[in-house]
Design a protein around this nucleic acid. Structure first.
Length: 459
RNA sequence: UCCCCAGUAGCUCAGUUGGCAGAGCAAUUGGCUGUUAACCAAUGGGUCCGCGGUUCAAGUCCGUGCUGGGGAGCCA
C-alpha cells in the first residue's frame, strides 16, 4: 500500500478507510493505555493526529518515540471526536523508522530565529520555516507560470562570466589555479587559468538577457547571483536569486507596468495558493502583514521622478540624518520615508542623475538624467532596480568612455547596438526580498534555505 | 568596513554594592482511560564565549580577541 500525504488526507470530506502515512513526530501525549501523536510530513503546515490504543501489536515500543522520530503508520482515517481537528488516524500498526534521541535540538516550543539559523539543516522541520520554504517553492513556480502565460522565453543565463564589470558590486573570482603555485610565483597568471583570463561568478544575468530580448522579444532569467560585498545587514546575502525580465520594444513606463503587474500577480498567487502558510505569518510573525499585502494588491503603485522625490524630501518636516540635495544617492532613511510614511505604498522612483547609475541606462533628453527605475516598498526598501537600456551605439560608447570601461571586453554587447538595435527595458527583482515582503520575515537569512554571508558557509 | 547591543544549563533568560550558580521550558524516570505546545511528581544537567589583567575574592570591574544581533554604507 502506498503512503498518502497528510495534506491530501486533511482535505477529504469523507472517510476513506485504511491509509498509510509516513513522516516525523512533532509531539506525543502518552498515557498507560493510549497515546496521541502528531505527525507532520511536510506536505502542509498542519499535523495529523494519530491515536494508538494499548491493544495494538507493538504498543510498548511507543514509549521510545520522541519528538523528531520518523514513523510509518497504518490505520483507519476516522472523524475525530476531539476538538481541534476534523480527522485523525486510529492506528493499527506503527513502525518506528528512526528514533531521534534526546540530543535532537528541536523542542516542542518556540525557538529564536538566531538559534534556528545555527541548525539550518533542521529548521525546515519547524512550522515557521516549513511554511516559509513551501511558499518559496510555490513562488518559484508562480514566476515561471506568469511568464509562461505571457509567452516569455526563459533564458538560463551563465553563472560564470568573463565580464569583469557588470556594474554591480564586488565579484567572486573563479579560478582553477593552484594556490600553492600562485604563492610561489607571487602573482596570478590568468593566461594559465582555466579560461585563459580572469573570470567570476555572475552578479546579474542582464547583459545576456538583453541579447536574448533582441532575438525573442520578451525573455526572463531567474537564477542565483553572487556578490562578494562585505555587507552585514538583514537584507543582504552573498548568494541570492534574482528574477530579471528583459523586453524589446518596451519603454520605461511599460517596464513599470510590467513590474507592478508581476508583483501583484505573485502576491495574489501566494495568498490564494498558500493560504494556510501565509496565515501563519500574518498571525504570528507580522501583525500588519495582511494590511500591507492588501495595499500591494489593490493600490496603484506611486510613480515619481527622482527630481520630484528630492523636492518632497526637502519640504518634509522630518529631520534626516543625511541632508537631501539634488544629485545625492538617496539614503535608506529617505527611501523608507517615501514608501512607509509619505505615500504608505510601493513607489516607483524614476529618472535618476546619470552619475549615480550604471553605463547601460538610457540617457534622457535633458542630458542629465537616465531612464532608471527603482521600486521602493515599505519594510524592504529596494525590491526592483531596472531601466530602459541605452539602445543607441554612440551614447552608449560615450558613457563607457566616461566611466573608463574596457570597451573591448564588451564587443559582443556593443554588437547588439550595431545590428538591428531596438529600444528595450528590463529590471531585476530580488527574489528573497520579495519573499520577505510577502511573509513579513525580517531577516533575509530566514527566507533562503542555507544562507551565505561573510564568514559563514556552514551547511 | 563603521557605530551600538549581547554572549550564564539543550532553549529563553535572571543574577542586587565584587562574597556558596538560579528560574521557566526541554530532557530523563514514574503516574494517569480522549489528549490538543496534555497534566501530576521526582531526578539529572554549568569551560558563566576565549585569553590576559586588577583584587583576599571576578559571572560581575579593566584590556583584548571571537561569535551573534540591530543600524549605516554597498545593493537585489
Amino acid at each position: 500500500m502506498k503512503r498518502t500525504k497528510i495534506n491530501v488526507l486533511l482535505r477529504l470530506d469523507k472517510p476513506v478507510g485504511k491509509v498509510i502515512i509516513k513522516g516525523w513526530i512533532r509531539t506525543k501525549r502518552a498515557s498507560k493505555t493510549f497515546s496521541f501523536m502528531e505527525v507532520n510530513d511536510g506536505s502542509c503546515l498542519k499535523n495529523i493526529q494519530v491515536i494508538a490504543n494499548a491493544d495494538i501489536q507493538n504498543y510498548s515500543q511507543i514509549d521510545t518515540i520522541t519528538t523528531g522520530t520518523s514513523v510509518s503508520i497504518e490505520g483507519e482515517l476516522v472523524e475525530s471526536p476531539g476538538k481541534g481537528q476534523k480527522w485523525e488516524i486510529q492506528a493499527s500498526d506503527i513502525e518506528i523508522i528512526n528514533i531521534a534521541p534526546e540530543s535532537f535540538p528541536l523542542q516542542k516550543k518556540r525557538h529564536s530565529d538566531e538559534f534556528l539559523r545555527t541548525i539550518a539543516h533542521l529548521r525546515p522541520r519547524t512550522n515557521k520555516y516549513g511554511a516559509a520554504f513551501r511558499i518559496r517553492s510555490e513562488m518559484v513556480f508562480a514566476i515561471h507560470k506568469f511568464y509562461n502565460e505571457k509567452g516569455f522565453i526563459y533564458l538560463t543565463a551563465p553563472l560564470i562570466t568573463g565580464s569583469d564589470c557588470e556594474g554591480a558590486g564586488e565579484m567572486f573570482r573563479v579560478t582553477s589555479l593552484d594556490p600553492a603555485q600562485v604563492k610561489k610565483q607571487g602573482k596570478m597568471d590568468f593566461r594559465q587559468d582555466f579560461f585563459g583570463r580572469e573570470s567570476s561568478l555572475t552578479v546579474s544575468g542582464q547583459l545576456p538577457a538583453e541579447m536574448f530580448a533582441l532575438a525573442f522579444g520578451d525573455v526572463y532569467t531567474f537564477g542565483p547571483t553572487f556578490r562578494a560585498e562585505n555587507s552585514n545587514t538583514s537584507r543582504h546575502v552573498a548568494e541570492f536569486w534574482m528574477l530579471e525580465p528583459e523586453m524589446a520594444f518596451c519603454d520605461l513606463n511599460e517596464n513599470m507596468d510590467h513590474g507592478e503587474e508581476l508583483v501583484k500577480y505573485l502576491t495574489r498567487h501566494a495568498l490564494e495558493k498558500c493560504e494556510e502558510d501565509m496565515a501563519l505569518f500574518s498571525r504570528f510573525v507580522d501583525k500588519s502583514l495582511s494590511q500591507r499585502l492588501d495595499t500591494i494588491i489593490n493600490k496603484k503603485f506611486v510613480r515619481l521622478s527622482y527630481t520630484d522625490a528630492v523636492e518632497i524630501l526637502k519640504k518634509a518636516k522630518k529631520e534626516f540624518e543625511f541632508r537631501v540635495e539634488y544629485g545625492i544617492d538617496l539614503q535608506s532613511e529617505h527611501e523608507r520615508f517615501l514608501a512607509e510614511q509619505y505615500f504608505k505604498s510601493p513607489v516607483f522612483l524614476t529618472d535618476y542623475p546619470k552619475e549615480i547609475k550604471p553605463f547601460y541606462m538610457r540617457m534622457n533628453d535633458d542630458g542629465k538624467t537616465v531612464a532608471a527605475v527603482d521600486l521602493l516598498v515599505p519594510m524592504i526598501g529596494e525590491l526592483i532596480g531596472g531601466s530602459q537600456r541605452e539602445e543607441r551605439l554612440e551614447p552608449l560608447e560615450k558613457r563607457m568612455d566616461e566611466m573608463n570601461l574596457p570597451k573591448n571586453d564588451y564587443w559582443w554587447y556593443l554588437d547588439s547596438r550595431k545590428f538591428g538595435s531596438v529600444l528595450h527595458s528590463g529590471f531585476g527583482l530580488g527574489f528573497e526580498r520579495f519573499l520577505m515582503m510577502i511573509t513579513g520575515i525580517s531577516n533575509i537569512r530566514d527566507v533562503i534555505p542555507f544562507p551565505r554571508t561573510p564568514g559563514s558557509i556552514d551547511f
